[in-house]
Design a protein around this nucleic acid. Sequence first.
DNA 1: GTAGCGTTCATACACACGTTTCAATCCGTG
DNA 2: CACGGATTGAAACGTGTGTATGAACGCTAC
Lengths: 263, 263
Amino acid sequence: MNKTQRTGHGDTRKRLLEATEWLFIEGGYEAMSLRHITARAGANLAAVNYHFGSKEALMQELLSQRLDPLNLDRLQLLSACEQQHPDGLGAAAVLGMLFIPAFRLSHGNTSGPAFIRLLGRVYSDPSLFIRGYLQDHYRPISGRFFEAFSRALPALPRQELGLRLHFALKALSGMLAGEDMQELITSINKGATINDAELLARLISLLSPILTAPFGTPAQVKVIEQLLDLDRSTARIDRAADTSHIAGESGAPQWIKEGRLAS
Amino acid sequence: MNKTQRTGHGDTRKRLLEATEWLFIEGGYEAMSLRHITARAGANLAAVNYHFGSKEALMQELLSQRLDPLNLDRLQLLSACEQQHPDGLGAAAVLGMLFIPAFRLSHGNTSGPAFIRLLGRVYSDPSLFIRGYLQDHYRPISGRFFEAFSRALPALPRQELGLRLHFALKALSGMLAGEDMQELITSINKGATINDAELLARLISLLSPILTAPFGTPAQVKVIEQLLDLDRSTARIDRAADTSHIAGESGAPQWIKEGRLAS
DNA sequence: GTAGCGTTCATACACACGTTTCAATCCGTG
DNA sequence: CACGGATTGAAACGTGTGTATGAACGCTAC
């Protein structure tokens, strides 16, 4: 029945998805307009609504195609690992099970390094649509991994664990979204022929302290107390509280007095 | 000469800034329209362009009023501390000098907890305007603190240090922007009468490992290698590379066949 | 009281957005 | 060749945006 699959010039659908992926990676969901997408894909403006029904449906399809396999692999790896080590896992290992499937998927396919940046964008995009999609579609996997972390760190209260996980994942996604990560990987690979395992271990060694670090020690508290004292004695005489808003002194609107008539 | 300061009903300017601050905190720069701002401030739409000249100028004024004093205090504290401890500072102490002025400013003024969330938004907002403003106006302070960190961590190559700093600050701002931080603070304060210094020390103890953690140890690398093996053996048979895009099987556009005619 | 300045108001402009419509095209099937 | 469904094309709609304009208002000073 799938005879008319490739009718017409017809890979418009594919080109639209690719263009969408690119623009999303570059600027996030809000900066991604249908006119930009269709122009980049060499398609007509109406093509998006014809093939997908709406802009949101387009984005959902892209996310589903990219994230579903990834999260399936993550769950499978977690299950296999829990079965193989029934006596418990370390937090670093659980982190590894989040990263390794992403790492593998980004190596095999043609999308190559773009996949990593897509991941970063998805997890750091502030738009309600993206956020809602993630929460709606991937709550099970979030829960599974939360439980895994909870077992790996039984001393941590669940609320505190949630906080630290937010913390760690924000750091990670903020990093992946930029181009810094690519530079890091290439620069490392140039410096010495480094193993994939070493690279991943290095990444995880940055993240796992966020989860495992103990609360502030007395020594650290003492350092902070000294700083607080120094700050109090250094701070300029308190500006009158909250009158800071009143800046314009008199007369015509302030912006007209400054030199920026040009531009 | 500043006699006509309070002419008319006239605190419109102040109300506009406050409304802007609220809306920016809630949704970021892009979600903040002039019509929303003026409606919330009980002012006319044209008021923004009259008092500030443009939307961007409004935002610049808000950011300048909030961030300039903060960063001045930070620099002053850093200078005082370097003078007091000419033999060098620890990374945790330098982190403290970033946080303590923000902490103090958020305690004194009426703006109270909003100031913290404003900070989080500013540093995590993805819009080009906000990013550009930060880079243009606060490059000196960034440089100063980068040097301070560099002296505190002489073993770290500068590129690696830059990476880890990005990492740490992304984590921090992502955390501050949400409401989680307020919950954390209040929940901590409820659990036990905790000192300001202890709270700050706890925060810093989460962040400083990102800067000071050593590279992956051989033991960690070994764990990752085991996981990689397990992943390779577990991964489902490779889907044909990158044909994942082709989903529609035949006939009419896929979205029309599904049940979502409603809504 | 009236002239003048600072401020507010309603309204309009030009543009970009997502979506819709309907005619024009393609191409396999009869 | 001609029919018909799948696809593409050009143009328009309604809404939201930032900005601009000019009249109306309030107050102070002469």
